[in-house]
Amino acid sequence: MSIQHFRVALIPFFAAFCLPVFAHPETLVKVKDAEDQLGARVGYIELDLNSGKILESFRPEERFPMMSTFKVLLCGAVLSRVDAGQEQLGRRIHYSQNDLVEYSPVTEKHLTDGMTVRELCSAAITMSDNTAANLLLTTIGGPKELTAFLHNMGDHVTRLDRWEPELNEAIPNDERDTTMPAAMATTLRKLLTGELLTLASRQQLIDWMEADKVAGPLLRSALPAGWFIADKSGAGERGSRGIIAALGPDGKPSRIVVIYTTGSQATMDERNRQIAEIGASLIKHW
């Protein structure tokens, strides 16, 4: 067993022997301040990774656009098919120029040779490549099948209805392509620590998230040296922004954090800054 596999296998073990965790309302004060600064709703939840206990939450059962955070769930569904012998990570998928959609920095470079399922998941999570996500959605049967996968996990809230990039439209009061912070946090925890996926697939999923290259201005910008984070960000229309993450000190994750916002007129930089400040408060009061 590799060191990384050992780390993920012992996530519940280490967490069980940690000192009790206590909620700190100071972080919620910052979440509410972010709402004021952005002029928009902000949803927040913080779960203990081992027990699933909610440590703090704000608007945990209000719907927010998922945006690209759905790509972690998508690759979880792909990995479940791999575990069941219905898919192979090494299978190569070929596609054409007509398949390319807006923001496809990886797939646009491989029109000639195609990409493997493993490479597509890596591109979808680490670079948020939209064509990679659409190609992977095709392998599982489309958005409705991802929703069905989530329902089978016990998540009857999260739903995907459309493809990239239309799913980022974020129309107010439109339930399409949305989740709730509580539902997303619980589902992410199941994917990373539950028995739904094999140990190898859980490790692969967290490795992809740990290698995320496009979430630097968010929670990662607030992390002290030595902290662990595996995350996936999302951005959408109407001032929408979000991030889902597993993080913790001492090089291992111990909490799940989900943050979503929508309806702001603020710039992307300002949305990023507010999420980073929430992260800084979380870490300060850990």
Rank of each mutant, 00 (worst) to 15 (best):
residue 38 L to S: 07
residue 183 A to I: 10
residue 167 L to D: 01
residue 52 G to Y: 05
residue 120 L to Q: 03
residue 188 L to W: 04
residue 248 G to F: 00
residue 115 M to C: 09
residue 69 T to E: 01
residue 270 E to D: 15
residue 146 L to H: 03
residue 241 R to M: 04
residue 157 V to H: 14
residue 93 I to R: 03
residue 44 Y to F: 06
residue 209 M to P: 00
residue 27 T to Q: 12
residue 49 L to P: 05
residue 32 K to H: 14
residue 35 E to Q: 13
residue 162 R to S: 09
residue 87 E to A: 15
residue 54 I to H: 15
residue 270 E to W: 15
residue 229 I to F: 04
residue 180 M to H: 14
residue 170 A to F: 06
residue 167 L to A: 10
residue 40 A to P: 03
residue 203 Q to E: 05
residue 150 L to H: 05
residue 48 D to S: 06
residue 212 D to T: 13
residue 122 S to K: 10
residue 119 E to C: 05
residue 193 T to E: 07
residue 122 S to M: 12
residue 39 G to C: 10
residue 108 E to S: 15
residue 115 M to I: 07
residue 264 S to L: 05
residue 152 N to H: 13
residue 119 E to D: 15
residue 155 D to Y: 01
residue 60 P to V: 12
residue 111 L to R: 11
residue 54 I to S: 15
residue 265 Q to D: 13
residue 128 S to L: 02
residue 247 L to Q: 00
residue 55 L to D: 04
residue 139 T to I: 13
residue 238 R to V: 08
residue 139 T to G: 13
residue 212 D to I: 03
residue 227 W to S: 00
residue 103 Y to K: 03
residue 107 T to D: 00
residue 187 T to C: 05
residue 45 I to Q: 14
residue 52 G to V: 04
residue 266 A to H: 10
residue 99 D to T: 07
residue 73 L to Q: 05
residue 219 L to I: 12
residue 286 W to F: 08
residue 213 K to E: 05
residue 225 A to H: 08
residue 194 G to S: 10
residue 229 I to M: 13
residue 91 R to S: 12
residue 153 M to L: 08
residue 34 A to I: 10
residue 141 G to S: 14
residue 114 G to C: 04
residue 124 A to G: 14
residue 274 Q to M: 11
residue 285 H to M: 07
residue 34 A to L: 11
residue 132 A to V: 02
residue 242 G to D: 00
residue 254 S to K: 11
residue 119 E to K: 15
residue 202 R to F: 04
residue 206 I to Y: 13
residue 60 P to T: 12
residue 259 I to V: 11
residue 268 M to F: 06
residue 91 R to C: 04
residue 56 E to N: 10
residue 33 D to C: 07
residue 209 M to H: 00
residue 132 A to K: 00
residue 69 T to I: 05
residue 174 D to K: 03
residue 185 A to N: 00
residue 186 T to I: 08
residue 50 N to I: 09
residue 40 A to F: 04
residue 109 K to E: 06
residue 224 P to Y: 04
residue 247 L to D: 01
residue 140 I to N: 05
residue 40 A to T: 11
residue 182 A to G: 12
residue 93 I to W: 03
residue 68 S to C: 03
residue 176 R to W: 09
residue 51 S to L: 08
residue 93 I to C: 05
residue 174 D to V: 04
residue 216 G to E: 08
residue 149 F to Y: 09
residue 49 L to D: 04
residue 207 D to F: 09
residue 257 V to E: 01
residue 237 E to Y: 09
residue 230 A to E: 01
residue 186 T to P: 12
residue 188 L to D: 01
residue 273 R to C: 12
residue 209 M to R: 00
residue 53 K to Y: 14
residue 182 A to N: 07
residue 233 S to A: 07
residue 278 I to H: 02
residue 175 E to W: 13
residue 162 R to T: 11
residue 108 E to K: 09
residue 187 T to P: 02
residue 92 R to E: 09
residue 180 M to E: 08
residue 267 T to R: 08
residue 55 L to F: 07
residue 247 L to V: 07
residue 158 T to P: 01
residue 238 R to I: 15
residue 151 H to L: 10
residue 129 D to M: 01
residue 195 E to C: 13
residue 275 I to A: 03
residue 31 V to A: 07
residue 75 C to I: 14
residue 59 R to G: 04
residue 76 G to T: 11
residue 268 M to D: 10
residue 65 P to T: 04
residue 147 T to V: 07
residue 141 G to N: 06
residue 121 C to Q: 01
residue 94 H to L: 11
residue 41 R to P: 13
residue 136 L to S: 02
residue 172 P to N: 08
residue 150 L to G: 09
residue 196 L to H: 12
residue 117 V to D: 02
residue 40 A to I: 05
residue 256 I to K: 00
residue 225 A to V: 11
residue 90 G to F: 14
residue 225 A to R: 09
residue 194 G to M: 07
residue 220 R to H: 04
residue 44 Y to V: 06
residue 171 I to G: 15
residue 268 M to A: 09
residue 194 G to E: 08
residue 165 P to I: 06
residue 94 H to Y: 08
residue 252 K to W: 07
residue 207 D to A: 09
residue 252 K to D: 15
residue 276 A to T: 09
residue 268 M to N: 14
residue 202 R to T: 14
residue 118 R to W: 13
residue 157 V to F: 09
residue 110 H to M: 09
residue 244 I to H: 01
residue 98 N to S: 07
residue 183 A to N: 14
residue 133 A to T: 08
residue 188 L to T: 07
residue 227 W to Y: 12
residue 40 A to E: 05
residue 70 F to D: 03
residue 90 G to I: 12
residue 243 I to D: 02
residue 90 G to T: 12
residue 226 G to M: 10
residue 129 D to E: 03
residue 244 I to M: 14
residue 144 K to P: 09
residue 43 G to E: 02
residue 133 A to L: 00
residue 176 R to Y: 10
residue 176 R to H: 07
residue 57 S to F: 12
residue 240 S to E: 12
residue 125 I to Y: 00
residue 272 N to I: 04
residue 264 S to W: 04
residue 72 V to Q: 03
residue 33 D to Y: 08
residue 147 T to F: 03
residue 100 L to Y: 07
residue 68 S to D: 00
residue 222 A to H: 07
residue 193 T to M: 12
residue 57 S to I: 07
residue 32 K to N: 11
residue 245 A to G: 12
residue 139 T to P: 04
residue 64 F to L: 03
residue 85 G to T: 07
residue 101 V to P: 03
residue 239 G to D: 03
residue 103 Y to C: 05
residue 150 L to W: 12
residue 274 Q to S: 12
residue 27 T to F: 04
residue 57 S to M: 08
residue 28 L to V: 12
residue 240 S to Y: 03
residue 264 S to N: 15
residue 45 I to P: 01
residue 159 R to P: 03
residue 237 E to T: 12
residue 167 L to R: 01
residue 154 G to I: 03
residue 132 A to S: 11
residue 197 L to N: 05
residue 52 G to I: 03
residue 260 Y to I: 05
residue 37 Q to G: 06
residue 200 A to Y: 09
residue 133 A to E: 02
residue 227 W to D: 00
residue 157 V to T: 10
residue 30 K to Y: 06
residue 80 S to G: 11
residue 64 F to T: 01
residue 251 G to N: 08
residue 230 A to Y: 02
residue 120 L to T: 04
residue 249 P to I: 11
residue 283 I to W: 14
residue 244 I to E: 00
residue 25 P to R: 06
residue 43 G to Q: 00
residue 84 A to Y: 11
residue 218 L to Q: 03
residue 236 G to S: 10
residue 80 S to W: 15
residue 286 W to Y: 06
residue 272 N to V: 04
residue 197 L to V: 05
residue 60 P to N: 13
residue 146 L to T: 05
residue 45 I to D: 00
residue 62 E to N: 07
residue 158 T to F: 07
residue 246 A to T: 07
residue 196 L to C: 13
residue 37 Q to H: 11
residue 71 K to H: 00
residue 201 S to F: 04
residue 275 I to Q: 03
residue 149 F to H: 09
residue 168 N to A: 09
residue 170 A to S: 07
residue 182 A to L: 13
residue 77 A to V: 08
residue 233 S to T: 08
residue 156 H to S: 09
residue 250 D to R: 07
residue 160 L to D: 03
residue 84 A to C: 10
residue 145 E to K: 14
residue 100 L to I: 15
residue 231 D to Q: 15
residue 247 L to H: 00
residue 219 L to Y: 02
residue 68 S to Q: 02
residue 150 L to T: 14
residue 141 G to V: 05
residue 107 T to K: 00
residue 247 L to A: 06
residue 37 Q to Y: 06
residue 111 L to W: 07
residue 153 M to Y: 07
residue 45 I to M: 15
residue 197 L to I: 07
residue 181 P to Y: 02
residue 99 D to I: 06
residue 227 W to K: 00
residue 283 I to R: 15
residue 224 P to V: 04
residue 198 T to W: 04
residue 192 L to T: 13
residue 147 T to K: 06
residue 219 L to R: 03
residue 105 P to R: 07
residue 255 R to S: 04
residue 220 R to E: 03
residue 186 T to S: 11
residue 159 R to L: 08
residue 137 L to E: 05
residue 86 Q to R: 12
residue 191 L to N: 03
residue 120 L to W: 01
residue 122 S to W: 11
residue 37 Q to V: 06
residue 104 S to Y: 04
residue 88 Q to W: 15
residue 31 V to M: 09
residue 266 A to Y: 08
residue 50 N to W: 12
residue 210 E to P: 01
residue 239 G to Q: 03
residue 92 R to F: 11
residue 196 L to A: 09
residue 233 S to W: 00
residue 134 N to T: 04
residue 184 M to T: 02
residue 229 I to K: 00
residue 28 L to F: 09
residue 116 T to S: 10
residue 88 Q to E: 15
residue 271 R to K: 06
residue 98 N to H: 08
residue 138 T to K: 15
residue 59 R to P: 02
residue 108 E to I: 15
residue 280 A to L: 11
residue 269 D to A: 13
residue 283 I to M: 12
residue 114 G to E: 03
residue 253 P to V: 11
residue 31 V to W: 00
residue 139 T to Y: 13
residue 66 M to I: 08
residue 84 A to Q: 13
residue 82 V to F: 10
residue 101 V to T: 11
residue 78 V to W: 03
residue 256 I to Y: 04
residue 198 T to K: 09
residue 105 P to F: 08
residue 129 D to Y: 00
residue 39 G to E: 12
residue 185 A to S: 07
residue 250 D to A: 07
residue 27 T to S: 14
residue 275 I to E: 02
residue 245 A to M: 05
